[in-house]
Design a protein around this nucleic acid. Structure first.
Lengths: 206, 206
DNA sequence: TAGATTGTTAATCGATTAACAATC
DNA sequence: TAGATTGTTAATCGATTAACAATC
């Protein structure tokens, strides 16, 4: 491992810490500790301290962490202190719901273009956006320099769409299609498949 | 660790294997190998064999796994060979989209009741379901013996709703609210927060 | 048979936890 | 000061991988 290489699993927990800090701030707290955070998240305080220590010493012995300061630091580490432009591919039932979801823009991710392959959808609207043809997709993404995309097309088209997105310069994909994508090393993929989460719990039911 | 205790992380991969097998079957394949599955999923073949071996020998040396047979076995292990009844709490923007999503019923999870706290929503419809008052929630879930629920209410109400659901007998919660839930050991929770997934990728972008 | 692939064991790797000196 | 909590080191724990005999 390269000396400054931070484990993926550490990075994946930072947004969870950030979310908990947002919540604490909303509740009016100004300072917290690894112990309090850990209790809320079901994570050991040692792990939280260790995770944070990869990026520097954000706390003070005896008192803990200033919430506002720690939030800002984590935002910068995660690069979510800025606004991001996001492309959405697929304007069917699922894609339209994604386009309408307000949580993205509220937290700095702005959907700025929506694509679909159905000619009868092109020109219509989804969640306030005019739907463009996938034929324009590569060019549009290149011109805008978009790096993040969400895929909400049927499973059988997802890999093809991903290939095009990557060719256009996208480096981060949130895939709502229930299928694994094969992508080069320099591209990140995250998956959302709610059924899969349900299937992870039924095993434990009687 | 108890002798028959299977690590959570193994269980969490089984639905991924199942999804890949469904796909292979759809493509017309009848047999596969740990190597082929691994290539598709970006997982080592050794890990797939090890994971499966927790539940018995499903394959044949030299030939691999019969897809149909392995699918059925995994379905039984995960208890998704049956149909499940699911309650949905929250019929706002997000809850309505969840109620309309067809993927749940297609894969054996049937939303059979939807609850909301807003009096003006009660009696109206969301995704084909009549919305009931949360005041009826505990009784309704108890009577029907529902064990799985999805939460799509604002973050500040999620913990309260979860507590009620658990009191009513729910043992598995899919939480769409962007907040961690504290639940007893005998209750499972899974989280869906798409923004969190995006935040896990921006770190790696330039 | 020859080639392929499983199931399993042992070795390796990496992540989590416990503990504590430093210090606010 | 006394009490609390950090950042870090070393120990533990658990998960992944490599390797191979068994066998189809």
């Amino acid at each position: 491992m390269a000396p400054n290489m931070i484990p993926d699993i550490v990075i994946s927990r930072l947004p969870i810490y950030l979310r908990a800090l947002d919540r604490l701030a909303q509740e009016g707290a100004e300072v917290t500790s690894s112990q309090e955070l850990g209790r809320r998240l079901g994570i050991s305080s040692a792990q939280i301290r260790k995770d944070l220590s990869h990026f520097g010493g954000f706390g003070k012995q005896g008192t803990g962490y200033k919430i506002h300061y720690l939030k800002e630091q984590l935002r910068q580490v995660l690069k979510v202190e800025r606004e991001w432009e996001v492309a959405l591919v697929g304007a069917g039932d699922l894609g339209s719901a994604v386009a309408r979801y307000k949580g993205f823009a509220e937290r700095g991710f702005h959907i700025t273009c929506v694509f679909d392959s159905a000619p009868d959808k092109v020109g219509k609207k989804a969640g306030g956006f005019v739907i463009m043809s996938v034929d324009q997709m590569v060019q549009e993404i290149e011109v805008r320099g978009i790096q993040i995309a969400m895929i909400a097309v049927p499973a059988e088209h997802a890999q093809g769409v991903a290939d095009q997105l990557i060719a256009a310069g996208v480096r981060a994909i949130l895939n709502y299609a229930p299928i694994n994508l094969n992508v080069p090393d320099n591209v990140r993929v995250q998956y959302i498949d709610p059924v899969l989460h349900l299937q992870r719990m039924t095993y434990y039911l009687p």
